[in-house]
């Protein structure tokens, strides 16, 4: 059994770390984390993937032991065949700009309520305006991150729009990761 210490990390980093460890094939994982949002989010995420969660109070935090059921096959990482959502614009569909922006915001907020989520969301071109400060979908992207969706924005694009310092949801990625994710994905939905 492996120990994973995510104490002191802010959301969604604990869920992302747990997701990576489980996808690396850990059948049983003991996670040391802080009480509050990290504890709730990791529990919800692991249970959603069919793991049983045993809780133990520690001094200054909690330990959760996540165990895969006997017939549970660990879910594959996006780079190894998961579902990827490629968001290449801050607008959804062709037509009036205002409507397109409204539809994209509505789509991302609606995803939070959907059961089957993508493994990874890649934001490129004007799509990165959705992950930067001032975007109205930051809360929704955080909620998706807490459910195990990896939110990644293209670094070149953030730089182009001078948004590098104001990324507000998820992490920065490069074209290698984007290319590998797209080519290795089980399915890609481009918006």
């Amino acid at each position: 059994m492996k120990d994973l210490d995510v104490r002191g990390l802010s959301c969604p980093a604990p869920v992302v770390s747990v997701k990576k460890a489980l996808e690396a094939g850990e059948g049983v994982l003991r996670v040391l984390l802080d009480d509050g949002a990290p504890r709730e989010n990791v529990t919800r995420f692991a249970q959603g993937r069919g793991y049983t969660v045993q809780e133990e109070a520690l001094e200054g935090g909690f330990a959760l032991t996540l165990s895969a059921a006997a017939d549970q096959k660990p879910k594959e990482a996006a780079s190894q065949g998961g579902a990827v959502l490629l968001i290449g614009s801050d607008r959804l569909g062709d037509g009036p700009e205002e409507l397109g922006r409204l539809l994209m915001r509505n789509f991302i907020m609606t995803l939070v309520e959907v059961a089957e989520l993508p493994d990874r969301m890649l934001f490129i071109n004007t799509g990165v305006l959705l992950t930067a400060a001032g975007s109205e979908v930051i809360d929704a992207l955080e909620a998706l991150g807490n459910r195990g969706v990896e939110v990644l924005s293209c670094g070149i694009c953030l730089d182009f729009f001078k948004k590098k310092e104001s990324l507000a949801a998820g992490g920065v990625t490069n074209m290698f990761t984007i290319a590998e994710s797209l080519l290795g994905a089980r399915s890609v939905v481009r918006l």
């Binding site: 409204l102 915001r105 509505n106 907020m109 309520e113 109205e136």
Partner: peptide
């Protein structure tokens, strides 16, 4: 205010 998807 925030424009949101209407709750189901």
């Amino acid at each position: 205010i925030l424009l949101i998807p209407a709750p189901r």
